[in-house]
Design a protein around this nucleic acid. Sequence first.
DNA 1: TCCGGTTTTCGCCTTTGAATCGAAAACTTC
DNA 2: GAAGTTTTCGATTCAAAGGCGAAAACCGGA
Lengths: 231, 231
Amino acid sequence: MNKLGHEVLAAVLQVRSRSPGQLSLEVLLWQRAREPQVGRWSLPGGQLQADEDIERSVRRQLAEKVDVRQLSHVEQLATFSAPDRVPGPRVIATAFLGLVASDNDPELPDDTQWHRVDALPRTAFDHEAIILRARDRLRSKLSYTNLGFALAPPTFTISELRELYSAALGHRVSATNLQRVLSRRGQLTTTGETASPGPTGGRPAALFRFTCRDIRVTDPVAVLRPPSGRR
Amino acid sequence: MNKLGHEVLAAVLQVRSRSPGQLSLEVLLWQRAREPQVGRWSLPGGQLQADEDIERSVRRQLAEKVDVRQLSHVEQLATFSAPDRVPGPRVIATAFLGLVASDNDPELPDDTQWHRVDALPRTAFDHEAIILRARDRLRSKLSYTNLGFALAPPTFTISELRELYSAALGHRVSATNLQRVLSRRGQLTTTGETASPGPTGGRPAALFRFTCRDIRVTDPVAVLRPPSGRR
DNA sequence: TCCGGTTTTCGCCTTTGAATCGAAAACTTC
DNA sequence: GAAGTTTTCGATTCAAAGGCGAAAACCGGA
């Protein structure tokens, strides 16, 4: 039997604010201190162990870089297998998408930093392709699932949520429409509380939370759905 | 470095007619002649070789069971890694979805047969889960992409296409609606030809083909799309 | 206390695309 | 030519998202 190495890699994404009011989608990377590719930035990950499946493995590997209890969502992305994707002995990689809610700010090791996904530094191997794949997966799932819960704090105003979505999707989002779409789907629950207005005043915003914090497909808009039989 | 085996598996799906007029979604399986799991039905696949990536590997392995030129579409599904998913030395599996258009009827080896996905025989290892995953992927992509081209013959009538979709989706489909949805999306092109009516008469049906035979997302119904800026 | 400024919220309307229905068209056989 | 079949097409309804502006609820300062 042909034996080869298998690693797991995770693109952990979070919407973060670098300067106040300026949110951006960022990814967790660590800088390589040794060859190969010294100085380049890598996704966290490592070799799969004998007694773990890849889902367990990715959580174990991530624990070295970040508090895994702050991971609100992890899902498999794809497996990358080009024979020359890394130098030396062949290694297959299964990539994951991880999400951290925006109210967390995990302690990071010295070699590890957040980087804007739209302004990546020099990355190692095929990691840039993996990061972009993770971003695309997040963007499409924000549309047709309730995955927003994994980016948002436990409770939030519509304006805050709008900024989160806007940073993650990379385009402007209307607060009016966001609220209507999510609440029509039953994803939003009002807490009854209100946030205190900012220094410039204004009507106090109502606080919401996601109805359900398990990922749930909103029906990938079931086109060609079965005939209703309704008359 | 921890070395382990890596195999690729393919769930090749086709809409086939067992008795005339009765279409069903079927999957290509071969029956195991040796331990482990003698007599159970397996997905085609095999060990990844040193110089190939998994996409090449799956096509190579499939060539042993079916004419690969008849494969109209192949895509990666997911990687399965439970340590005990097969007995003996550990093997990771990356599963693929393959599609064959309904006008093909490939020559098959003696140990290989088509089986209805909704009436599977006793399958080996975790292969049933993979088959169901493949079916679900096909069903959702039929809705929001033009993947139908991979199931359909080069040219077809709307009625034929309706039966194909109906068998693949597992529910009735309205011909009227199917035609309008696909042509609004620009996926259908009329050939100008018409099919000859059946033995019972009836208006001759117009022949169509898919505008484009590369997979193309129809916009996963871009909810929360960017503001139009239109006034 | 009143008033302008600010932010959120809500209702109404438009737009888009899918589902339904029924009638017309085009062919068969008798 | 009449009756029966099947396809095709237009008109209508229905559902969900996007756009817009007015009303609500707060601020600070005159």
